[in-house]
Design a protein around this nucleic acid. Structure first.
Length: 291
DNA sequence: AAGTCGTGGTG
DNA sequence: TCACCAAGACT
């Protein structure tokens, strides 16, 4: 099946409009790229930037992080959200030291085997850090391809095999070009082909965009899932963990009791945080970040 | 395979 | 204002 060639206009657009992000600089190590990718999972660039700089200053290598207790990673994670990512990054650092001689592995399968590294993140590190040819299919790329190629406003709620095949079919044959193509499509989705209000006037492929050519039909699929937060277990977990992050050492149960009113919910949240390894109960009844 | 897991910015 | 969204992973 013949498709218009999207690569040249998008690559040219990227050359001109790419943001200067620290993890894209030539001196960014594979470890720096991995750290950025984990932090960027569901968290906007603007909030990641300061945490990323502080993290890499303190832990410039996997070995540096691996030498610390996991609780230090959780504390340094701050308010990035989804704190199990901090635990995953710490566990990945230790696995990298143990299994890969302290070097972030270049092989996709080895990356994918690290905790918290799924299909997207493994492809991103292999592509961006090691310049290999992998389809990087994140929320931005999925949206761009849905519009540009498929002609619909939004991709399906859950990623399909068809989307993977499509992304792979569009990959430039040359590895170095493919690596740039991946980050370029992501950037296009982040800056121009945005979810809410796409800036079609600034789009380098407006002429061949299937969604525009179809008259920009609105999304007609099932309602997208809402993410209520206030009053949820997630908010409760966040409050409890914040108490631990702000404390210099172990805290009394009373300090946690003060952080959330509903007793049942608080106990459930605390149990799940302990189960997840984000909080350790001590023999004396106090609680601490994992050591 | 649909739910769960944080937090904050924004149209 | 408030529902939606943000470089997902895991179960």
């Amino acid at each position: 099946m013949h498709r218009p060639t999207y690569a040249e206009p998008i690559l040219s657009w990227y050359t001109e409009h790419a943001r200067d992000l620290p993890w894209r600089r030539p001196d960014a190590s594979p470890w720096a790229v991995l750290v950025s990718e984990i932090m960027l999972q569901q968290t906007p660039v603007s909030r990641v930037l300061p945490a990323y700089e502080a993290w890499l200053t303190r832990w410039p290598t996997p070995a540096a992080l691996a030498a610390e207790p996991p609780g230090e990673a959780v504390r340094a994670w701050g308010r990035l959200g989804y704190p199990r990512r901090a635990l995953n990054l710490h566990a990945s650092a230790r696995a990298i030291v143990d299994r890969h001689d302290g070097q972030v592995p270049p092989a996709y399968d080895d990356l994918r085997a690290l905790p918290g590294v799924g299909a997207y993140t493994a492809a991103a590190v292999a592509s961006f850090a090691y310049r290999q040819r992998h389809a990087v299919l994140d929320t931005n790329v999925r949206r761009v391809l849905a519009r540009m190629v498929t002609g619909v406003e939004y991709p399906p709620k859950t990623q399909t095999a068809g989307e993977v095949r499509l992304a792979e079919s569009l990959l430039p044959p040359d590895a170095e070009t493919a690596a740039t193509w991946g980050v370029a499509v992501m950037e296009l989705g982040a800056l121009v082909c945005t979810a809410r209000t796409p800036r079609c006037a600034d789009c380098p492929v407006i002429a061949s965009c299937a969604w525009r050519l179809a008259g920009k039909p609105p999304y007609d699929g099932p309602a997208r899932k809402g993410q209520t937060y206030a009053g949820t277990d997630r908010q409760c977990r966040g409050r409890l963990l914040a108490v631990l992050r702000h404390a210099s050492g172990p805290v009394e149960r009373a300090a946690l009791d003060d952080a959330w009113d509903d007793v049942r919910q608080r106990e459930r949240a605390l149990a799940s945080l302990i189960e997840d390894g984000l909080i350790d109960p001590l023999d004396d009844g106090r609680f601490t970040l994992p050591r």
